[in-house]
């Protein structure tokens, strides 16, 4: 009996390893299985109750769109991709630079922070038409909207990150007679990176929303334009496919930022 107890209590390293990989497999398998089950239910439900295609297309109908209309989807994907990416870079860059200015000068912060808060309180849907009026129907307005939507969370996080340096680290810098720029490059900026990346992960998904909202208001290409067009033409399978492409774009940007974070932040 004691022998069998010992055998139960003890797990050899190999056992533990396989247990680990099994639990990792389960982590992937469970959500995947759920997704497949939901898709199957969807497919069966739509077919069983004879739901018209324009109200709710079956997953296979949407797959058919991906096969037949792939060039159309891609033609509209690229503009949205470029707008999102450009908005992501411009919005975050501006936020980072302004955060640096805020941290260096309380006066600048006092002058501009209330304005930043005010701009943030305007719903993006309300400001988007104004920007389209100003910048015209081209890509610029969409880039600006995408940039604007990224801006505020990154600004707030970056300011917090730059201020997250421990007082002792600053005393260490003082004892070493470090200059302001040395403190910035060697201590403040690296300390802020974890905060910056958590903001960039938010921005990775919101910049796509910004670009699409911009396209709703006035555009003839882009995923947003395609969403509007397919809605008005009752092309539901195309609408669903476009929505999937949009969320795929968000996921792609999010994963890219996450990978960059893993590579850069090792501490």
């Amino acid at each position: 009996m004691s022998v069998s107890e010992a055998a139960v209590g003890e797990t050899s390293p190999q056992n533990r390893l396989s247990e680990q990989s099994r639990s990792r497999l389960m982590n992937i398998a469970i959500p995947l299985g759920t997704a497949v089950a939901l898709l199957l239910t969807w497919q069966l439900g739509v077919r069983l109750f004879n739901v018209p295609k324009y109200i709710a297309p079956a997953p296979t109908d949407i797959l058919a769109v991906f096969r037949d209309e792939f060039p159309l989807l891609m033609r509209n994907f690229w503009p949205t991709f470029i707008e999102s990416l450009a908005g992501f870079f411009i919005g975050n860059m501006a936020a980072i630079l302004i955060a640096i200015a805020f941290v260096h000068s309380r006066l600048v912060e006092r002058a501009f922070f209330p304005i930043a808060v005010f701009i943030n309180t305007i719903p993006i849907l309300a400001i988007a038409p104004i920007l389209v009026l100003i910048f015209g129907p081209g890509m610029t307005a969409k880039v600006v909207i995408a940039a604007l939507i990224c801006f505020f969370p990154t600004l707030v996080n970056m300011v917090r990150g730059l201020q997250s340096v421990s007082p002792q680290a600053l005393e260490l810098a003082r004892i070493l007679s470090a200059s302001k720029s040395e403190v910035f490059w060697k201590i403040r900026l690296p300390s802020s990176l974890p905060f910056l990346f958590s903001a960039l992960k938010i921005a990775a998904t919101t910049c796509v929303i910004g670009a699409i909202v911009g396209e709703w208001i006035g555009a003839n290409v882009g995923l947003g334009a395609l969403i509007i067009e397919s809605t008005f033409n009752f092309r539901s399978p195309l609408l669903y496919a476009t929505v999937f492409v949009s969320s795929g774009l968000s996921v792609f940007l999010f994963v890219s930022v996450t990978i960059a974070e893993k590579l850069i932040i090792r501490w």
């Binding site: 680290a169 007679s177 040395e182 990176l193």
Partner: peptide
Amino acid sequence: FVFQDATLLPWRSALKNVELPLEIG
């Protein structure tokens, strides 16, 4: 100065932390 908590820069390796005073200035 040696502080109560080591006050190492978490993104720098042990060696890089020791080299910090040589870089500053």
